[in-house]
Nucleic acid binder design. Structure first.
Lengths: 211, 211
DNA sequence: GGAACAATACCCAGAAAGAGGGATTTCGCG
DNA sequence: CGCGAAATCCCTCTTTCTGGGTATTGTTCC
């Protein structure tokens, strides 16, 4: 169960998302914050796995909120959600620690997929926003902060899926790759992290609140 | 690395423990609290894995502190540490959520063993205090609180050790049983918790902050 | 005394993971 | 263009785990 908080000035957007996720028993919108301050307040007592954060928020804007959010709750995943694709917005959000950038206007499928990718440790950037992302900017590694130890995006995705009690076979299906590739990723990660068992990986993922 | 906070009115006791654990690179005393209030304050900003809590504390006594502690930080492990073995003290501490009762006066080995047992999800009760424990009192299950789902102490120990990246073989050595027995425990736990992979066990342990 | 449970240990078969290796494609960078 | 990193896939071999059993020894409980 993924608990989501929607931070958007408009109630109707939150309701729209609720509607879109109505048939997803694994995704639940647990709260709606109309401002950045309200969001930060809610996070003090509401448990959430993912924030859908609009860039345009009254008062303390999305970027500002993102910065505070990332400092105060470094483990929580944030998917920027905005109608704006201007380069300064996209980059700023990613620099401040957003795990992806979803452009408003996409369909339900993109929404679900973006959430899935984000929750799996990946980084979803909508095509429209992707062009704005600075070339060579390692946006997907932002969330690793100072302790970035050289895991690739795919490798992180594999870790998270392993931590979700999945076998190489299942992970292969989810990621649309062969189980052998999953094993390769797994091996590399274990070498990099210097662990000998899956438990070590799971521990790593949990310590970083990836799951 | 196990981070320990010592709560004892006397500085000298904390220093004594520091001395005893000086050669243990895996055990570190990160703080000393002279009162229960001080301990609770420290827990707000100091990360700790284990509390060595004296029953006799000035002001808010050990039992009272234990009660608050258990409510406010349900995941943290607490090993009661006292010179007193009176039945009311021992029982009260265990009832309030202590994970064990170590009598002052034991040697270094008992200290280390008690810490190890506690960190492994077990329940160390010093022989002198054991007689005081109400017969049939399921002290070791206290920390499971409401969500006790029928795991035995040994089974919990196994989970914790699995979560520490250990193989059945290693766990067998640590617990002084054959790896086959470890497997049996493991199997039973997996059935009870309805998980199919080690990752599931690690997740379970982490969710409950056993590791 | 018998039922129930915890803890111990073993057997077996199959699935999965761990540890080596090699190989290809793609893509950005200098 | 060549380099390196990332991502993909494959092979072999060993170890470990997983899921069925069975069985013995205690202890607790009724």
């Amino acid at each position: 169960m993924t608990r989501i908080i929607v931070a958007d000035a408009l109630d109707v957007v939150a309701d729209g998302l609720r509607y879109r996720l109505a048939d997803r028993s694994d995704l639940e919108i647990v709260a709606h914050a109309a401002t950045g301050t309200e969001l930060l307040d809610q996070l003090m007592y509401i448990e959430a796995d993912l924030i859908l954060l609009d860039v345009s928020l009254p008062g303390k804007d999305g970027i500002d909120t993102m910065r505070t959010l990332h400092r105060r709750f470094p483990g929580i995943r944030v998917l920027a959600y905005s109608a704006l694709v201007a380069i300064e917005y996209v980059n700023s959000m990613l620099i401040e620690g957003a795990d992806g950038y979803l452009v408003k206007g996409g369909d339900k499928e993109e929404l679900i997929e973006a959430i899935r990718t984000t929750m799996a440790g990946g980084c979803h950037i909508s095509p429209a926003a992707r062009e704005s992302v600075s070339k060579g900017y390692a946006y997907c590694d932002k969330r690793m902060d100072g302790e970035y130890i050289g895991l690739s995006q795919r490798e992180r995705e594999v870790i998270v899926l392993i931590a979700q009690e999945r076998t190489n076979e299942e992970i292969g299906e989810i990621m649309h790759i062969s189980p052998d590739t999953v094993k390769t990723h797994r091996k590399r990660v274990m070498t990099k992290l210097n662990v000998r068992t899956s438990a070590g990986l799971v521990k790593y993922a949990h310590d970083r609140r990836w799951v």
